[in-house]
C-alpha cells in the first residue's frame, strides 16, 4: 500500500483557487497557465478547445524516483498514462437555491503502465466522481487531468467534445457501475461496439465479443437479446465484457465485480491481471476487499482529498 506522496495536497477548507501553485509545481511540474479550469462556457465551447487539444507541450515529467504514487512500481518510469493534478470538483444545485456540494479538492496522483491503482474511501468520498472526470463525463472545475496520447499528455479538463470522444475511443476505457441498455441492441453488439469504433470489422468484433461473453459465463442463448431483461449480474457481465474488449491503454473500473458471483469475480481479476501484463494502466473502485487486494498495486485514499 502507498505512503502519502503528497501530504501538502491535503488543504483544509474550500478547494484552493486554481491559480495557486499546484502541489506538484515544486517538482518541475508545470501548472496550467490559465486560471480558469472550468469547462468552456456556451460561447467558447467550440473554439477554446484548441488550447486543450494542443496542451501537449508539458515537459516530460520527472517522475522516476519521485514516488508520485508512493509504492513506485517498477513500471513507473517515464510518462504516466494518467496524471491527475490538483483536481477539484463541486456541484452547484441551482434547483436547491444554489446549494454548493463540494466533492473533492486537490486530488493528485498518477497511474503508470502496468499498474492497477485503487481509489479507496467510503461511499460518497468522491471516488466515482474522480473516474467520471477522467472520462470527461463530469466537468473538471479545478486542476488538471492529463492522459497519455501519442507520447504526450493531453488535457481532459475542458477538452473539446471531439477530442474527448477520440480519447475514449483510443485511450480511455471505462466499465461503468451499471450497464446503460439501449432498446433493440443485442448483448453481442453492446460488447462489440468499442471494437467497431476502433475500426475492427463486424465479424471479428462479434467473434471477440462472443469470446468475452463466454469467458464471463453468459449463456450463449442470451447473446442475441437486448440486455434490458437480464439480471443485474448478467448485465454487469455484459458491461465488463464491453469494458475489457477495447485496446485502450487506460482503463477505469467502477466496481466491476459488484453483483458478480465468486466464479465471475475471479474471471474479472484474471482480466485485470492480463491488462496489467499488456502494459495497460488501471484505475478502479473496488468495494470488495478481496478483489482489491488481488489486483491493486496501491490504494489512493480519496478521503485525503475531501472538499
Amino acid at each position: 500500500m502507498m505512503t502519502d506522496p503528497n501530504p501538502e495536497a491535503k488543504l483544509s477548507g474550500d478547494a484552493p483557487a486554481p491559480s495557486l501553485p499546484s502541489p506538484a509545481s515544486g517538482r518541475g511540474f508545470r501548472p496550467r497557465s490559465s486560471p480558469v479550469m472550468h469547462a468552456p462556457d456556451a460561447q467558447s465551447g467550440l473554439t477554446s478547445n484548441a488550447a486543450a487539444a494542443t496542451r501537449t507541450d508539458a515537459p516530460p515529467l520527472p517522475l522516476a524516483g519521485e514516488g508520485w504514487g508512493g509504492g513506485t512500481p517498477a513500471s513507473s518510469q517515464g510518462t504516466p498514462l494518467l496524471l491527475v493534478d490538483n483536481l477539484g470538483k463541486s456541484f452547484t444545485l441551482h434547483l436547491q437555491g444554489g446549494l454548493s456540494l463540494p466533492v473533492v479538492a486537490a486530488v493528485s496522483f498518477a497511474v503508470h503502465a502496468g499498474e492497477c491503482v485503487a481509489l479507496g474511501g467510503p461511499s460518497g468520498a468522491g471516488k466515482s466522481s474522480i473516474l467520471k472526470m477522467v472520462y470527461g463525463n463530469y466537468r473538471v472545475d479545478q486542476g488538471s487531468v492529463q492522459v497519455a496520447d501519442a507520447g504526450a499528455l493531453v488535457e481532459v479538463a475542458g477538452a473539446d467534445p471531439r477530442l474527448m470522444l477520440r480519447l475514449r475511443r483510443a485511450r480511455i476505457g471505462y466499465v461503468s457501475q451499471f450497464l446503460r441498455v439501449i432498446p433493440r441492441v443485442s448483448a453481442l453488439d453492446v460488447v462489440a461496439a468499442p471494437l467497431r469504433a476502433e475500426g475492427v470489422d463486424a465479424e471479428t468484433a462479434k467473434a471477440r465479443a462472443g469470446a468475452g461473453l463466454a469467458r464471463l459465463n453468459l449463456p450463449e442463448r442470451l447473446w442475441g437479446l437486448p440486455p434490458a431483461t437480464f439480471s443485474g449480474g448478467e448485465q454487469q457481465r455484459v458491461n465488463v465484457a464491453r469494458g475489457f474488449i477495447g485496446s485502450q491503454p487506460l482503463l477505469l473500473l467502477d466496481e466491476p465485480t459488484a453483483s458478480l458471483d465468486a466464479a465471475n469475480r475471479a474471471v474479472v481479476i484474471d482480466l485485470i491481471h492480463e491488462k496489467k501484463a499488456q502494459g495497460c494502466g488501471l484505475l478502479g473502485i473496488f468495494h470488495d476487499a478481496e478483489t482489491r487486494d488481488a489486483v491493486a498495486d496501491r490504494v489512493v485514499d480519496v478521503t485525503r482529498f475531501s472538499a
Partner: peptide, 24 residues
C-alpha cells in the same frame, strides 16, 4: 444557446439552472 458540450457531460453534469431543470 445557454449550454453546450459533450452530450453525456451536459446531461450528467449540467451547469446552467435551466439545464438542471430540464434534466431533473
Amino acid at each position: 444557446v445557454i449550454e453546450q458540450g459533450l452530450t453525456d457531460q451536459v446531461l450528467d453534469d449540467p451547469r446552467e439552472p435551466y439545464t438542471q431543470l430540464l434534466v431533473s
